[in-house]
Design a protein around this nucleic acid. Sequence first.
DNA 1: GTTTAAATTAAACGTTTGTTTAACTTTGTG
DNA 2: CACAAAGTTAAACAAACGTTTAATTTAAAC
Lengths: 210, 210
Amino acid sequence: MEEYSEKQLSILTVAERLFADQGFHGTSVRDIAQEADVNIAMISYYFGSKDKLLESIFKYRMETSRKFINELLENDTMEPLQKINSLIDRFINKMLGEQYFQCIMSREQLNSQQSPIRDLIWQLKGEMLGLMRPIVTNAQEAGIFYKDVDVEMLMTSLFGTIHQVIPAKHILRTNPEAKDLNDDEYREYLKNRVGTHLKKLFKAILTHEF
Amino acid sequence: MEEYSEKQLSILTVAERLFADQGFHGTSVRDIAQEADVNIAMISYYFGSKDKLLESIFKYRMETSRKFINELLENDTMEPLQKINSLIDRFINKMLGEQYFQCIMSREQLNSQQSPIRDLIWQLKGEMLGLMRPIVTNAQEAGIFYKDVDVEMLMTSLFGTIHQVIPAKHILRTNPEAKDLNDDEYREYLKNRVGTHLKKLFKAILTHEF
DNA sequence: GTTTAAATTAAACGTTTGTTTAACTTTGTG
DNA sequence: CACAAAGTTAAACAAACGTTTAATTTAAAC
């Protein structure tokens, strides 16, 4: 657990946004320094290198992802389908709340050569799956959920749909429904729309009901 | 419609793979020249610049996507659900068959600053949506599909799921089912698995049946 | 065979890249 | 105040970048 000063956080935040918008190699340390209003040398001084800066972003964000997972493990009083719905809502909230980081993840998971970062991503995905699977399995054994469910594919659709929505948000805005919303309203509209959609998908597949 | 010589095609193919694996800015023209076994200058000579090389890749691949769409518009004898299933199969075949290009699309659609390429991507997505929507609408009016369906979100899940499967293919390989398959067998296994999953999703949402 | 255009090459071009240096300022401590 | 550590700076570094040049080879046409 590392503590960051205001200046360090500024660098992290700016770098995260630029990496998301232009890619890691498409962003120069000079870009970052300029937008964060710090001297170029400070980046190496604080983080060691551009690569380690990216690593720091991952460590920083993944820490909160772990907390997120642990929080979810505690809600044990709900019905299986309620659990699923709550999980979906929280995933959407989390991922749309850190869109820049999710963009970086989308990009980095495509890199073919294996790296510590790529390993971290798939490890995290595995943990998310580990969160969903027991809920489903338990409900299946209790006869509440149907048996032949490809939980892995269901999670793939969950992540994939949200990851598609993030870059599509500029475009979906042109919908007549969403045309006149301000940014906050639109964000809520999006969350609601993708949430409704995903809950419908999961409910249908898991319970064969609507 | 441009015709490419063997050498030009070699450059295009190599560049496509490298852009997919390492990103556009993560790949140097020297990398491309070396792997394609041509002189560096030939890239500028044939394509004008690195940027235009990427554009050429897009034009090349998108041409086949347009053909793909037109082919699909002809199958008019099938039942609505058959059409949907056929569409899903063809999407999967197409996208997994050009994984490198799909990776590039995944990356490029994340770029925040608008570019001709980004516009092309969303235009193509719009056309894919335009392919699905009338099938659904017609079947809805015929009382075969249910009314309240978010076709746009359904397509988002379709693309998102496949785009997630592409980088996940290295990982999914570790499944006990897929462990001992060779590359071709594994590709078929993947296609079948994601296809079954997506057809189930669509059928459930559209017909409320299983 | 000569001429003209296209293809190909190694070398060099000017930028931009990530990183480091060395000097300087600020801050905290005794 | 004095001293040491941390923070900050402009400048410089070599390396890599995309692109161009000018010279040479190959191919095609007459």
